[in-house]
Amino acid sequence: MAVAIEIERRRALSLARIVDRYYGPAVSTLAVLAFLLLWQFAATRGWVNVRYTSAPSQVFSAAVDVFRHDHFLHHAWVSFSEFSVGFGVALGIGLPLGLLLGSSQRLRLFVEPPLMALYTAPRLTLLPILIVWLGIGMASKVAVVFLGVVFPIIVNTIAGVREADPRLLQAARAFGANAPDIFIKVLVPGALPAILLGIRLGIGRGVLSIVVGEMFVSEAGIGHQIMTYGEAMQVNRLLVYALSITLFGYALTLAVRLLENRVRSWRPQP
């Protein structure tokens, strides 16, 4: 009898756990489905003008079309390579610079004001200048991605290093740590969550930069296609490209977030 109750209770518990675990994703998925259904329904019922709003079914067939006949992979590759190069350079410069600035107050006094100004400045306004300097090819887009990504990385890395717990630094020194030891074993691991946060913010800004940069002036790329189909009023195709780049940014952000969760696992979960 007691055993039966116990089993019953366990079953209920594990069910509760499953519900708990999948509740969030399930609700999100349902919300997306509901939205798509409503969109489709509104379009077929003629509540909205399909010419402007398109419909999920139309976007889907446009997607098939785009992937087959529109050199989609070529445009995706152009955008992706511009993004990757800009992002890589931003990481390669931003991370060491942030670590350096985070650990030296004197350097910070020099560099922080212009840095903060650049961080808050609407950097897309620099786009015309970048194009004058670098031309309409890859370089100007790489530069605008770089500018979008580098500042969140620098600023967050600085914050992460500065928040280092003085008690940990003292403990390290008590065991004879030298400056590189403290850097590698205390400052960098302590700053890692903040660094990843900077990278995640950088991804969002980088993706936006690439699209706007290409929309502004370019010969190929996702942004270029969005602009082209926008001018041609081909909403279906426009949406295919817009959705692709959104998915790309979302997936990358999600990956970094997962990494962040792993890195933060040593902290009590809120």
């Binding site: 008690r167 003292q170 403990a171 691991p189 302590g190 890195v263």
Partner: peptide
């Protein structure tokens, strides 16, 4: 030291 001196990520 007091307890807060352990590296939380280790």
């Amino acid at each position: 030291f007091q307890e807060a001196s352990l590296l939380p990520w280790r």
